[in-house]
Design a protein around this nucleic acid. Sequence first.
DNA 1: GAATAATATGACGAAACGTCAAAAAATGTC
DNA 2: GACATTTTTTGACGTTTCGTCATATTATTC
Lengths: 255, 255
Amino acid sequence: MVCPVTKIISAIKQPTRKQRELLQREELIMDTAQAMVYEHGYGHLSMDRVAEATEYSKGTIYNHFSSKEDLVCSLCCRSIKNLIDIFERAYQYEGSTRERYSAIGIGYSLYNQLHAMDAQNIQTVKNNAVREKVSEEKLVEMESLEHNINKIAQSIVQEAIDCGDLDKKHQDNVGTIVFGCWSMHYGAMLLDQSDMPLNKLGFSPVVNMLWENSNIYLDGYQWQPLSKDTDSKKLFNEISSALFDDEIALLKQSS
Amino acid sequence: MVCPVTKIISAIKQPTRKQRELLQREELIMDTAQAMVYEHGYGHLSMDRVAEATEYSKGTIYNHFSSKEDLVCSLCCRSIKNLIDIFERAYQYEGSTRERYSAIGIGYSLYNQLHAMDAQNIQTVKNNAVREKVSEEKLVEMESLEHNINKIAQSIVQEAIDCGDLDKKHQDNVGTIVFGCWSMHYGAMLLDQSDMPLNKLGFSPVVNMLWENSNIYLDGYQWQPLSKDTDSKKLFNEISSALFDDEIALLKQSS
DNA sequence: GAATAATATGACGAAACGTCAAAAAATGTC
DNA sequence: GACATTTTTTGACGTTTCGTCATATTATTC
């Protein structure tokens, strides 16, 4: 159940050559696994295949990841780190609190469209039968990452309250507001996944519905400036191109 | 890949003795599988164990369900049928369109709290790796059920528009509105599932957040009467006890 | 350069899936 | 009721994959 290598790696400050090699190999294993999932689906991912593809033995793979599920969870952690990066970019956006919060939602949609498999991995790990087999350490890591990403969203809501864009009466509802958007986006992403056929060029129709719905929702909280007093279509495009130009390009290219 | 027995059963109008026996056995298998998941988790469900517990051979089980995933999907279909029943009760509720629509949400929350494992099964089947192994027929059945349940929600929205509770300008957004609530509830349910520790007596805190959020959301659509002009806490209790008294009792009892 | 510690390997046992030839039961025919 | 034919059931079998562990290999220390 314990991963000797992981334990060593996690305690690193200034990595030695040896440790760099281990880290590098860990990356290689993860990249290989990810490619496998991307190309042939989750069902085709097996430890034996990963071992063969990386040209290491199975035992070595197990030195890095205590189980197949642990490996998938590691992929999730990497995805969440990518999401954190996106959330941070949204946080830095020069605009109203409302716009910055919306930017998070757009970034989230974008990421999930670009990396549908990542979303699928996260969904896989959320499943209790899978979760059970993930090592304690890795679960802790994931929870910590999820906590951090949540924090970013919460701070924007808090700032909105502080500057008056959101009424002070919502002070105790910061969690609820974030939870609302989170669940809506999370649910939409998962529902979208089952209906894969609808992937047209650019954003999927689900993204548009989601954008409308989140605006309605935030208007419901009277978060200023209201979307009904704004050109929300235009805002969507502005935010997309200001923050996520590279991703948009990729999206257009891949369709 | 084909299930001989299922094929026979599905074409039944007036079941003969033989067919009744097959149906009955199918129920037995499903009940056994469900109990297994409930008691020891999804990971403990195996076809061999089901065969042993039902005292039929594995081959016979496979005559009914073409794969383990097919069996789980059948459990999902049963859950969705239960949900349809709940949605229909909500549809019949004597109250404003807004209240009836809210009743759906409450029923959904309730069902998922009472049958957390059902929700987990649905989540499992949504996963592509699992979905791939479900027989075509079963997938069609599930999609049809999902379509029906969606229809119930959509008709309430439509009625709201027709009677003026919802502005006519939303005529083209019926799908979007239902999708919004659906994704929010679906996402909330899944997020709730990962945080199992928070199951206090009665409704989980997530249900409260969800209730608040859906009200805000529907207020955003200006769906009359607005929750901010109503005692929404009271409404929640009224709907719960009017429609879901039995379920509430079960919920209190199980905590 | 030898002794010791760390790491890598792949053969192995266990668990589970799904199949299929043969056995058993049910049904039909005379 | 006896025999033939069809349907259904059975469980042994082949296959895949998991995760382990004794052994082999490599690295490090003295």
